[in-house]
């Protein structure tokens, strides 16, 4: 079983209860190791009794359980120092805290679902209409109006949010997982942003906004774009950069406009280019 994400399971059920013989855990998910901007992570495995002798060994440090396979990582205990993080989490939460974390992860997800399902179709709800710790919002229907899921992801940046998971496991959807660590007002901020974006899509649907020159297609809007002398869009600068009141209180500015993937793959440059290309030469002002 790929048990990478245990956040709906801890304290309520377990991979062994479900019937798995082997399961790996991403400690950088459920057990609090930070993602580090793309690593480190840790993926220890748990196994049922009959598989214990085969757990990985090591050439230098003896950790063989009898019939160990050769090592999978260079160090005997992988990235050992960050195991401390998961150790601290479990020790400080205890059985009840961990179980409550699972429950609140499920509550937070279902709260978002309750607020957003009027605006976005939700895939995969259980028999009781509930989601577990995450949900999939279907954005495929907007394609008919030229709005792609990427446009929603990029527009969220204007609202100060990082997009949920895009197009996994179903293309054209977003998967939302709030976790237990987010308070209600943060969930509300996110829901408000998603609902506001849904209204922006509606404007395109109804022909109230241009199909191409609209805040979704042009997102994200940088400070340079907003403050430029020229503004050639049918919507206001205010709507572009401060679409909801909360954004004005604490604005995160994307540092570049939408990146061009195909351009970069066509002319592949993977080292720091000459400094002139991205920094202004300081010249003395007389």
């Amino acid at each position: 079983m790929d048990g990478a994400n245990m956040n709906a399971q801890v304290g309520l059920t377990s991979p062994a209860t479900i019937g798995a013989d082997v399961c790996h855990l991403n400690l950088h998910k459920t057990f609090c190791i930070p993602h580090g901007g793309g690593g480190p992570g840790m993926g220890p495995i748990g196994v049922a009794k009959h598989l214990v002798p085969y757990l990985p060994g090591h050439a230098v440090v003896d950790i063989d359980n009898g019939k160990a396979i050769h090592a999978v990582s260079a160090a005997p205990w992988g990235s050992a120092s960050i195991l401390l993080i998961s150790h601290a989490y479990i020790a400080m939460m205890g059985a009840e805290g961990l179980t409550n974390a699972t429950k609140y992860a499920i509550l937070n997800a279902n709260y978002i679902k309750a607020r957003l399902e009027k605006h976005y179709p939700v895939l995969y709800a259980g028999a009781n209409g509930r989601c577990a710790h995450e949900m999939i919002l279907d954005c495929r229907g907007f394609k008919a109006y030229g709005i792609e899921v990427t446009d929603i992801a990029k527009r969220l940046m204007d609202y100060g949010f990082h997009a949920p998971t895009v197009s996994f496991p179903v293309a054209g959807t977003v998967m939302v997982e709030p976790t237990e660590s987010e308070p209600k007002h943060e969930l509300d901020r996110f829901c408000n942003a998603m609902i506001s974006i849904r209204h922006e899509i509606e404007d395109v649907e109804k022909g109230l906004a241009d199909k191409v020159n609209n805040p979704l297609k042009n997102a994200p809007h940088t400070a340079a774009v907003i403050t430029a002398n020229e503004w050639e869009h049918p919507y206001t600068r205010q709507k572009a950069a401060f679409p909801l009141p909360y954004v004005a209180q604490y604005k995160f500015w994307p540092s570049v406009g939408r990146v061009n993937d195909t351009y970069g793959d066509r002319t592949l440059i993977c080292t720091c280019p000459p400094i002139e290309s991205y920094e202004f030469e300081e010249s003395a002002i007389e």
């Binding site: 690593g39 993926g43 220890p44 990985p56």
Partner: peptide, 23 residues
Amino acid sequence: ITGFAAMSLQPNAGAQGEYAGLM
């Protein structure tokens, strides 16, 4: 937490864990 008999803390990423389990 997982209900398993033993763990290996060696795999240093999720994909490594998957691979280790399969091996």
